[in-house]
Amino acid sequence: MDFINYHSYFENIVKTDATEQIAPYNDVLYYDYTRLNWSRFNRWLKTGKLTDEIIASVAKITEPQNWLVITEPWCGDAAHVVPFIEMIARLNPNIHLSYELRDAEPFSIDRYLTNGSKSIPKLVIRDATDKDLAVWGPRPADCQKVYDSLLAEKASFDTIKLALQNWYNVNKGQAIQAELNILIASVLG
Score class of each variant (00 low, 15 high):
T62D: 14
T129V: 11
K122I: 15
C143S: 11
D127H: 06
A78I: 00
R111V: 03
Q144H: 11
N66P: 00
R126N: 15
P93G: 03
I70V: 12
H80Y: 10
R111H: 15
K60M: 11
L113N: 07
R126G: 04
G137L: 00
P140I: 06
D77W: 02
T129W: 04
S108K: 13
K60I: 06
G116L: 08
N94K: 14
P121N: 09
I70M: 01
P106Q: 05
I109A: 02
L123C: 03
E63N: 11
R126L: 10
D52F: 13
I55E: 09
A56S: 11
L97A: 03
I85A: 06
W67C: 06
A56I: 11
F84R: 01
S57T: 12
N66I: 07
R126A: 13
P64C: 09
K122W: 03
D130R: 12
L97V: 06
N115P: 01
E53M: 07
A104T: 11
R90Q: 15
S117E: 10
H96M: 09
P83H: 05
N94Q: 14
C75E: 01
R139E: 07
R102E: 02
A141C: 09
A78T: 04
E105V: 13
S57L: 15
L133N: 03
P106Y: 05
D110S: 13
D52P: 08
E100Q: 14
P93E: 08
H96G: 06
G116A: 10
D110Y: 11
G137C: 00
I61G: 04
V82K: 00
R102Y: 05
L97K: 05
A134R: 04
S57V: 11
E53P: 04
I120C: 01
V58A: 15
T51W: 09
W136F: 10
V135A: 09
P140S: 10
K118H: 12
A79S: 13
R111M: 12
A59H: 14
A128D: 13
A79E: 01
W136S: 04
D130P: 00
S98H: 13
K118I: 12
A79T: 02
A134W: 03
T129G: 08
E105D: 14
V81Y: 01
E105C: 03
L133F: 04
R90E: 13
S108M: 08
E72S: 12
D103Q: 05
A79W: 00
A128M: 07
V146I: 14
L68P: 04
V135I: 11
K60G: 05
K122P: 05
K60Y: 05
D130L: 12
E86C: 05
P138V: 04
D77N: 07
L50G: 07
R126Q: 14
I120D: 00
L133T: 07
H80V: 00
S57K: 14
S108I: 06
R111G: 11
A59L: 12
K131Y: 02
I95A: 02
G76N: 03
R139P: 02
L123H: 01
T129K: 15
R111Y: 13
